[in-house]
Structure formats: structure tokens, C-alpha cells
Amino acid sequence: MILSLACLLGVFGLAACSGGDSDTDDEIATMKGDKITVGDFYDKAKTDQNSQQIVLDMIISQVFMEKYGDEVSDDEVNQQIKDTFGDEDTLEQQLEASQMSRGELEETYKQSLALQEGLKDHVDLTDEDLKEAWDSYHPQVEAQLIAVNSEDDANDVKEQVDEDDADFGEIAQENSIAPSKDDDGKVNFDSTTPAEEVPDEVKEEAWGMDDGEITDPIAVESEYGSGYYILKMNKNQDKGDDMDEYKDEIQDVATDNKINDQEFTTKVIGEELQDANVKIKDEAFSDILTQFTDAAEGNQEGSNSTADSATEESTEATEAEDSSNE
């Protein structure tokens, strides 16, 4: 991910050359009888699909940063970076490999968080949204987790933990590659825990387990990597029937569900672009906002249609009442 961010920043710089202090006639390369200028590059690059996406991302980022950037704290940015890269040594290695500065990385994360703040600002939860979140929610459990790279290692660990008087924590310390290995493999998680911390396959297995039960090796293939997991459930709990007991958690789940809904985010981004009065000046990028503005305008038309329908119903009711009085 960080390499991709560095590439984006590099392209941003090249694109800026077309309208900043640099001249579009500045030469990128020369050859016998010809040359390639910054202007040549821009004219060629701007029609590329990747360039179109980059400009769209820049517009959205700047719109949301202008309106919601002040709502994002430095602590939130640093916490996001820590959650992604872990220790400082790993982060520094990645920054060096990508030739990206800490400041550039922080700015990128701040833009992402500003977008999230903007989306949350538009969330208006219904009873149906809360009910859907409640149905999918499982409260926090206490467990121990061993993660290994291969099936052979997983089978070997499984044999060890099934032995009489086996100490799951010691086996986790000796074999696990998970960050929790230093704490006897102990993990606390609920249904909202990110998949990079506890894979979804592991969570789904956990909800039906009894206290003291140990799973067979669970194979996981995801964007975060492949591996095998063995879970020991220490304390499971049923959520019961009282949703109010988990009111804050359910609202968070319902909000996340909204933010992760593509139709919702497209409409919200479109509304914010319209509110910011974004105008495309280069014909090459004339269509990049269409999906968002169409979604926003469609929502407005739907609202107008509802209002018109209500007006018509009110008018019909009035006419009917007048007729009855006559």
C-alpha cells in the first residue's frame, strides 16, 4: 500500500508541472530531431485510465480535507499508521523503500480520515439499519490464538495442544507468528474486529464454540496473507435479547455498514462535490465526476418526487373535503 501511495504522490507532482511554475515546454527527454516535453507527457498521460482515477482522487481528497480536515487529529493519524505498520522500525523501512517521507504518509492518512468524517456526517440511521447491525453483531470473546504459515506446522501444533496437561500459552509462545504470541496468544475480539487482526474465518468459527474448546487448524486465504490458525476459546458469551446493552457498539456497526455501502458513499461524495461547486476545466476529465453527480441529483429528484407526491395527496384530500362539505 505504501508503495502505491508513493507512486500517486509522484504522479501528482508530474501533473502539477502542467499548470504550476514549470513550463509545459520543459524538456523531459531529447533525441535526434525531436524531444518530449512536460506538455507532451501531460497530453498523453491525462487520457490514461489511471491518470483519470488519480485526478478524481485528488478532487475528492481536497474537497473533504477542506470541509472535514480540521476534525481529524494528529493522534488519530498516528494511530492509523501504527495499526497499519506496527512498530517504528517496519515503518521506517517501508518509507525508505518507497522514498516517501513521514509527512507525506501522514497527509495521505489524514485525507482518508477526512473522507470518513465526511461520510459519517451524512449517516442517518434508521431502526432497520440498527436491526441489521444487531443481527450480525457478536460481543467480545476472550481466547488464545496460534498462527502458523503451513498446514504441516498447524497439524503439529494441533497434536501438541491436544495432549494431556498441554499449556496452550507456552505452545503459542514457541510456535505462533501472531503478535499475541508474547502474551500466551491471548486475544480479545468481537464481530467488528478487523480481518487483519483476526481473520473472518476464525471469528465465524469462534461464535459457536464452548469455553475450553480448541479448533482444528483453520485455513485462511485473504489479501492480508495466507496461513493456518488454531483457536482456544476461554470465555464466549451470548449477546442475549437486549440490544440496548450494546447500544454504542450497534450504532458503530450500523454506521460502518453505511460507510461501506457503495451506493451511499457515491451519493454522499456527489453531494459534497456539488456543495463545493467543483467544475472540470479540462475536457479530458469531463466525465470523471458523472457517477457521483448523477447519484446526488438522483437523490434530489427522489426527494422532490416524494414532496410532490405529498403535495398532490394533500391537495386531493382538500378537494375531497371541500366536495363533501358541498
Rank of each mutant, 00 (worst) to 15 (best):
I59E: 05
I59L: 11
I59G: 03
I59S: 06
I60L: 09
S61R: 10
S61P: 04
Q62P: 03
Q62V: 03
Q62D: 15
V63G: 01
F64D: 00
F64M: 07
F64S: 00
M65E: 09
M65K: 07
M65V: 06
M65L: 14
E66D: 15
E66V: 03
E66R: 12
K67S: 06
K67A: 06
K67F: 03
Y68P: 01
G69A: 07
G69R: 02
D70F: 05
D70K: 10
D70M: 07
E71Q: 13
E71D: 12
V72K: 00
S73V: 07
S73F: 07
D74N: 14
E76F: 04
V77N: 03
V77M: 05
V77C: 05
V77A: 05
Q79K: 13
Q79N: 14
Q79E: 15
Q79D: 15
Q80M: 12
Q80N: 12
Q80I: 08
Q80G: 04
I81L: 07
K82W: 08
K82L: 13
D83Q: 13
D83E: 15
D83I: 11
D83C: 07
F85G: 05
F85R: 04
G86Y: 10
G86S: 14
G86V: 14
D87S: 12
E88I: 10
E88H: 10
E88V: 13
E88D: 15
D89L: 14
D89V: 14
T90D: 13
T90M: 13
T90C: 08
L91M: 11
L91I: 11
E92C: 10
E92M: 15
E92I: 13
Q93N: 15
Q93S: 14
Q93G: 13
Q94T: 11
Q94H: 15
Q94I: 10
E96D: 13
A97Y: 14
S98I: 08
S98L: 09
M100G: 08
M100I: 10
M100T: 09
S101R: 11
S101I: 06
R102P: 04
R102V: 08
G103L: 08
G103T: 10
E104L: 06
E104R: 06
L105N: 02
L105V: 11
E106Q: 12
E106I: 02
E106G: 03
E107G: 11
E107C: 04
T108F: 07
T108K: 04
Y109T: 07
Y109Q: 09
K110C: 04
K110W: 04
Q111W: 01
Q111T: 03
Q111F: 01
S112W: 02
L113H: 00
L113D: 00
A114D: 02
L115M: 10
L115D: 00
Q116R: 09
E117Y: 04
G118A: 03
G118N: 02
G118V: 00
L119S: 00
L119C: 03
K120N: 08
D121P: 01
D121W: 01
D121R: 01
H122C: 05
H122Q: 13
H122Y: 12
V123W: 01
V123I: 12
V123H: 00
D124A: 12
D124P: 00
D124H: 08
L125T: 04
L125I: 09
T126P: 05
T126D: 10
